[in-house]
């Protein structure tokens, strides 16, 4: 248990650092007129229908993600390190040794504490969700992923190429 709490604390600390560095876009401040491109993605069990996206730096993208699977999925944008930390935190939130209950306890974290630094959206099976995001200018590439425990490992990730 102590180990779990420690991991969690570390996760939060790094998240805060990321938020401070200020990458990631704000969803509320963008109107439809500002959107440069709409990307429609399918999230299934356990894949996204695209594994690579080429996006121009500075473009504002509206992601429309439809969940065609049987399970809840999320769509999170971030660099590999942040994704991994998010994943570890969600795994810790799940509690080890019990896949049974509290299954989605990690979710509030994804949208709450993570929201500032990692653009993310959660999609129920059969639903479509939108996420508006402006690609940063100073990064070569990012990842998108579903970090619900096991989902990334089973295949739910892709690369965003930002080299223009």
């Amino acid at each position: 248990m102590r180990k779990t709490l420690l991991t969690l604390a570390l996760g939060l600390a790094t998240t805060a650092a990321f938020a401070g560095a200020g990458h990631g876009g704000s969803q509320a401040a963008v109107s439809d007129a500002d959107i440069d491109r709409t990307i429609r993605l399918e999230a299934g069990d356990m894949w996204f229908n695209a594994e690579n996206l080429d996006i121009a730096p500075g473009d504002t993208i509206k992601f429309e993600i439809v969940n065609t699977g049987n399970l809840e999925h999320e769509f999170v944008i971030g660099d590999a390190k942040a994704q991994e930390e998010h994943r570890e935190m969600m795994q810790a939130m799940m509690g080890s040794g019990d896949g049974g209950h509290g299954g989605h306890g990690g979710h509030d974290m994804a949208e709450g504490e993570h929201g500032g630094s990692m653009p993310s959206v959660t999609i129920a099976p059969g639903d479509t969700a939108e996420l508006v995001w402006t690609a940063p200018q100073n990064v070569d590439g990012l990842e998108y992923a579903c970090n619900i425990p096991g989902h990334y490992e089973a295949g739910m990730s892709g690369n965003i190429d930002l080299q223009g």
């Binding site: 356990m46 399970l71 795994q91 896949g99 425990p149 096991g150 989902h151 490992e153 089973a154």
Partner: peptide, 17 residues
């Protein structure tokens, strides 16, 4: 290495790291 279990006795299961 983390191992993510994706099938048991040939039948797919929800992934468990």
């Amino acid at each position: 290495l983390k191992m993510t279990v994706v099938a048991a006795d040939g039948q797919p299961v929800q992934p468990v790291p």
